[in-house]
Design a protein around this nucleic acid. Structure first.
Length: 477
RNA sequence: GGCACGGUAGCCAAGUGGUAAGGCCGAAGUCUGCAAAACUUCUAUGCGUCGGUUCAAUUCCGACCCGUGCCUCCA
């Protein structure tokens, strides 16, 4: 079964083409610039990319997933200097944090994770080629710029007319020209190589055009072509990257190769927080850690991020997190009940969920799978998943329960949702609470319920709750 | 001004030319001494407004109202 996906360039839903002769499906994802913790909006993009990666594997596309780390730009340099540490130490710190967050969100590791600073030579080579072919020139400031007017297809991806960029009459576009923009021939020309400036400190590399550093689009062109060839199957990123980043990547690559840079473009729409655009000034830039501290496990965040279609804005709210938490809990209950029917342990489930067999037949979850491969329709798929669970017959039949669990494990693996991950926080339970709880338990056993309730109230007054089990009780704060 | 997207129950969110998936919340019930959990059931004559096409429109077309994104910081 193939996977259909909306393509930004053609503005249509197209079935992804498989590589010829079993060749890998090359997938390049624009990764983070590591200058601070990634926020939940960044992770919407990475989670959707991860979902696609998983579907590609299940559907037999044999994906080769490349996601870069941008570890040199204005922000990384500025911040590292502010903290008085080297750029390398600074970006490594935030790369580690990024990896930890990815792991918490159950993102599969990309097969390659190239860093911009480790591919300076490839970028220099690409720029040299662009100059040789007449697509780039050295500006008065010593920087090298791409000549947009020389590349006739510029603007095709984002459907923007380059002659109209920057000349709108109304609109709310801010004046964001940097000081060196007057050094270029045209306002739309963008930097391929930035000449060294004093404020760059020690962060520069030698090049045929003098000391400096790469511009902020060239690394993706250079690295994606290095790992995936001149034409890759798919290129993905957040919607904001469509213009100018991806437009520039296409220009840089196609001007040199004269070949199609990417066959398919995937852009993930931004998320909002509590109905508003995320921004530092509104103080609503949540990191995964912020959300965990409010009591929501990363899997809850992942569920919420997948609960809306990736081409619709997603409103990230705490109400939504609660809903996601409850929904995930429902799935967990369903699995727990089936495990009992199947006479399987929780360990068996963990094992099943970690490396599920690709089902030949998706049985009752067929629709859930079909929706996923139809332009990643996760909300419809989740709907089908719950419908299947609600209609689930024969939950007491061992064989049936086992079959359902096997397929469900695969569905949940496709979603990248791990169950039963809520941290079991082992709190120090005060001795007084323990004593009261034990006394209540004894009172209950001797059927003195009035006394038992008195203890329950006392415990509640101290902020604890008793949850009875068949043969004992749990204490919860 | 250009390009694009959206307005579906209290909240979130799919979908379709033939009469509204699903989740959350809420309500009722079963089961437990109580509580919690779990399970069962219920919850939009309605899909921004007004027209048009049609046997039939929430779904197509047009106009209008409201909201959002992008137009060189941004996932």
């Amino acid at each position: 079964m193939g996977i259909s996906l909306y393509d930004t360039l053609s503005r249509t839903v197209k079935e992804l083409e498989r590589g010829e002769n079993g060749k890998c499906f090359g997938m390049y994802c624009c990764g983070p610039t590591v200058y601070g913790p990634a926020h939940i909006g960044n992770f919407r993009t990475f989670v959707v990319q991860d979902l696609l990666r998983r579907l590609l594997e299940f559907a037999g596309y044999n994906p080769l997933h490349v996601r870069n780390i941008t570890d040199v730009d204005d922000k990384t340099i500025r911040q590292s200097q502010a903290e008085g540490i080297s750029l390398k130490a600074f970006t490594e710190k935030w790369t580690e944090r990024f990896h930890a967050d990815c792991k918490a969100l159950n993102l599969l590791d990309p097969h390659q994770e190239p860093r911009a600073t480790a591919h300076i030579q490839q970028q220099i080579d690409l720029i040299s080629n662009l100059i040789k072919k007449g697509f780039a020139y050295k500006g008065n400031d010593g920087s090298v710029y791409f000549r947009v007017s020389a590349f006739k297809d510029y603007g095709r991806l984002s459907h923007l007319d380059p002659s109209e960029v920057n000349v709108q009459g109304v609109g709310s576009r801010k004046e964001t020209q940097s000081a060196d923009e007057y050094e270029r021939d045209a306002i739309t020309d963008f930097a391929l190589w930035k000449a060294r400036k004093e404020e760059d400190g020690e962060n520069f590399w030698k090049s045929p055009w003098g000391e400096g550093r790469p511009g902020w689009h060239i690394e993706c062109s250079a690295m994606s072509m290095q790992y995936l060839g001149e034409t890759m199957d798919l290129h993905a990123g957040g919607i904001d990257l469509c213009f100018p980043h991806h437009e520039n990547e296409i220009a840089q690559a196609e001007a040199v190769t004269n070949k199609v840079f990417a066959k398919h473009w995937l852009h993930i729409v931004h998320l909002m927080v509590e109905g508003r655009k995320m921004s530092k000034s509104l103080g609503n830039l949540y990191t995964l850690k912020d959300i965990e501290e409010k009591g929501f496990s990363p899997m809850v965040s992942r569920y919420l991020l997948l609960s809306a279609h990736y081409r619709q804005p997603l409103n990230f709210t705490f109400d939504g997190l609660h809903a996601a938490q409850s929904a995930l809990g429902r799935i967990e209950s369903f699995v727990s009940n089936l495990l009992t029917a199947a006479d399987w342990s929780n360990e068996k489930w963990t094992q099943l969920a970690a490396s599920p067999q690709i089902p030949e037949e998706w049985s009752i979850f067929g629709k859930a799978w079909d929706f996923l491969v139809d332009d990643l329709n996760t909300p419809a798929s989740l709907g089908a998943l719950f419908t299947a669970m609600n209609n689930c017959p024969g939950t007491t039949d061992q064989g049936n329960a086992r079959n359902i669990l096997k397929v469900l494990a695969a569905v949940l693996f496709a979603f990248g949702l791990r169950l039963f991950t809520e941290k079991k926080i082992i709190l120090e339970i005060p001795q007084k609470i323990r004593d009261l709880a034990e006394m209540r338990w004894q009172a209950k056993l001797s059927k003195d319920f009035a006394l038992a309730d008195t203890y329950r109230k006392q415990i509640a007054a101290l902020g604890w709750e008793i949850l009875d089990r068949k043969d004992g009780y749990d204490l919860k704060q």
